[in-house]
């Protein structure tokens, strides 16, 4: 039972990080960033390169390695996010049909990106050294491994930090303002272009964090971004694009559903259960769960 909950929580926190990135980008700049899979992989490879360099220098574990892995992954993804922004966001931002064209542009980037990874890193999966060690804590009947625990804790901390920062800082205020009313934001001196790039960098960093931690179990490969992208998409969709609480709840539901289905039904049914849940949510709340929360608040 505990194992079930833990694995659900791990999945939820990882997918949640990716989904919040997507949701956040959509709400503030109105662009569906479907290159999030590319950004995800970029973080994984950045961490891989860091690990390589460190191993060559003779460091294979310890805090330098662990923290460096996390930071390099986040930095790699943030840079990838800025790259996507400078190609798909800045040139198209105030042109006709920005939404559709931005969508297609990010899709094209994701197509190119996968091939570039393939060219530079080859098709094999690359493992990352363990960040949180390999131990295990026994709780009652089940247990939880260090990496699972670490993933949950770090994801929660990071998410809280980002939300707190959004709540209190000036840049956060500007971003929230832009989500609510882009015209009003322009009037109070918020530059859509600068803030948009900032948003892309932050959601990239969140994605990179998820990438490094998921790479603990699934490794890094050119196509490893596809699964997180699709699940992230449907979570952000079910959560209501732009709503952080909605996304967190949707991530929890999806994580739980995936863990339950894999355990009691069959692994092959997981996609259909997820899809069914999301369709159900959307049929009753076309704007996702976030819409529900907003209704209650009002």
């Amino acid at each position: 039972m505990i194992e079930l909950i833990i694995s659900a929580a791990v999945l939820a926190s990882m997918y949640g990080l990716v989904a919040i990135g997507i949701s956040f980008t959509w709400a503030s700049i109105g662009m569906l960033n479907l290159a999030q899979g590319f950004i995800f992989t970029a973080g994984g490879y950045a961490a891989y390169l860091y690990a390589q360099t460190m191993t060559n220098l003779g460091i294979t574990e310890g805090p330098v390695m662990s923290i460096g892995l996390l930071i390099s992954g986040m930095a790699g993804s943030a840079i990838a996010g800025l790259f996507v922004g400078s190609i798909a966001f800045l040139p198209l931002q105030d042109r006709a049909n920005f939404r559709t064209r931005g969508l297609i542009a990010t899709l094209a980037i994701s197509l190119i990106g996968t091939q570039l990874w393939l060219i530079f890193f080859g098709p094999q999966s690359k493992p990352l050294p363990p960040i949180f060690g390999t131990g295990r804590i026994e709780i009652g009947s089940g247990g939880v491994s260090y990496s699972q625990l670490g993933a949950i804790v770090i994801a929660t901390l990071m998410l809280t930090a980002v939300i707190m920062w959004m709540r209190s800082s000036r840049a956060g205020l500007q971003m929230r303002a832009m989500m609510m009313n882009p015209l009003g934001a322009a009037v109070v001196g918020v530059s859509v272009r600068v803030t948009g790039m900032r948003v892309l960098a932050i959601s990239g960093a969140l994605t990179g964090l998820a990438s490094v931690m998921l790479a603990q179990t699934f490794f890094v490969s050119p196509t490893s971004g596809v699964q997180p992208l699709t699940v992230g998409l449907i979570i952000s969709l079910a959560g209501g694009l732009g709503s952080i609480p909605g996304t967190v709840i949707a991530a929890a539901i999806v994580g739980l559903a995936e863990a339950l289905t894999a355990r009691y039904l069959a692994q092959s049914l997981v996609p259909f259960v997820l899809f069914g849940i999301v369709v159900l949510i959307l049929v009753f709340r076309p704007r996702g769960l976030g819409g529900l929360l907003e209704d209650v608040r009002e």
Binding site: R99, L241, A266, F275, V279, V283, P286
Partner: peptide
């Protein structure tokens, strides 16, 4: 079925995941 309820982009997102799911299903 969901197309009746969903906005354009929401629908695009929903259907984008579909082939990935089918791939998973076939693999397993």
């Amino acid at each position: 079925l969901p197309a009746r309820r969903l906005d354009g982009l929401y629908y695009a997102l929903l259907t984008l995941g579909l082939s990935e799911f089918c791939r998973n299903f076939v693999t397993q």
